[in-house]
Nucleic acid binder design. Structure first.
Lengths: 210, 210
DNA sequence: CCCTTGCACGTACGGTGTACGTGCGTCAAT
DNA sequence: ATTGACGCACGTACACCGTACGTGCAAGGG
């Protein structure tokens, strides 16, 4: 058993690990302490409280995404790349996603994606107010998409229907839903995301100087 | 003191009231019981557990929104109207919004909006797969927008800056963010929402038969 | 009449975040 | 070398949480 000296990064890492293994509800100071083989109150020597710890989790996850931005590429490609980079969160840290998006970070890790996105949009020819508008539009879409992908928001699949029991929806009351039930039941998150990003890029392109 | 006989609707109503007054974190079975002037365990005669109670909250809020749908109107107007109807949640029950969007309801209240949206999109000429895609796109945007509006997701305002202290962002590290700080600090949620809805409608219109 | 049923209620258990006090190891100043 | 301060791991304690379980009372049907 390595007796490495307990530090904020180690605590945050343990928290992320625990969240990914057992979900955000499993996180408690006692549980994390046990995971680290340490007394509960020892954590408070490195982290002021649980809320700050979760901020650390969000920051750590966010700074772990690969944000390779090529300033010479066409702005549409840069937007695509940045949107996809954000979606990495849902892939690499699915159960932490809600923690990440529900916390406002004023740190380097939190501001960097915003800075890049604004730079890209300004480079595309948008003025300040338009750039902010477009950014907010993208953020709303991305947040909504990620929350669906990681399951905090519904997919409208009729839950996990074993075999072909399908939905129990009344075709008389909900004709469209029951007719489209097979389509609603499955959701290719990557395809949906890509489709949305393309749609948005195409839509805002007409607003720019083209 | 009215000794009205304690029922599931009364409990749900008390929960919603409490959430709106003090936030979702303030909700506990004990607190709700106290609010109703009743013993804690009495609640369990009408509600199986807290989770089911929150489902009741979501359902109640959702069924409270006014879904006036005019089947004769142009589909773009119907989409607009439905999007706005959904946004009523953020207005009428802001603190309950997260509870509503984070729960999948297979009840009448939960399926009705989906049914209407699909009917509208099918009426606009989309085939099944496209209708589902467009619906998911809209839902992602709306969920993201509402969560920003009710404050669970960040606005990127540099928090509540008293007076003119503005942001503490380093202009050298984040030139765009600091230059656009005044724009990022304020967010007209209604305007942003309307802008997004128009953009989406316009974007998907080119996909339909026009 | 009795007896079932419904429901309000109290108690109790295992969990939570964290305030506070205690003791030990290391390092600086005397 | 002695002493003092300080950092940090830890245990105890408190208030609160969800809820399993048992008890008692009032109403209604046989």
């Amino acid at each position: 058993m390595t007796t490495e000296p307990l530090s904020r990064p180690r605590i945050v890492a343990a928290a992320i690990d625990l969240i990914e293994r057992e979900g955000a509800d499993a996180v408690s100071m006692r549980r994390i302490a046990a995971e680290l083989g340490v007394g509960v109150m020892s954590l408070y020597n490195h982290v002021p409280n649980k809320d700050a710890l979760l901020n650390g989790v969000a920051e750590s996850v966010l700074s772990g995404i690969e944000f390779t931005d090529d300033p010479d590429a066409h702005w549409t490609d840069r937007v695509r790349a940045q949107a996809r980079a954000f979606r990495q969160i849902a892939h690499h840290h699915p159960r932490s996603t809600m923690v990440v998006v529900s916390r406002q970070l004023h740190s380097h890790a939190g501001l960097l994606p915003v800075e890049r996105a604004l730079a890209t949009l300004r480079g595309a020819g948008f003025d300040g107010p338009d750039a902010v508008r477009m950014l907010r539009m993208f953020i709303a879409f991305i947040v909504g998409s990620l929350l669906r992908e990681v399951g905090v928001t519904p997919t409208f699949a009729p839950v996990h229907s074993r075999t072909v029991e399908a939905a129990v929806v009344d075709p008389a009351l909900f004709p469209e839903v029951s007719a489209l039930a097979p389509l609603l039941a499955e959701c290719d998150h990557e395809a949906e995301f890509e489709f949305g990003v393309e749609l948005l890029i195409q839509a805002i392109a007409v607003h720019a100087g083209q």
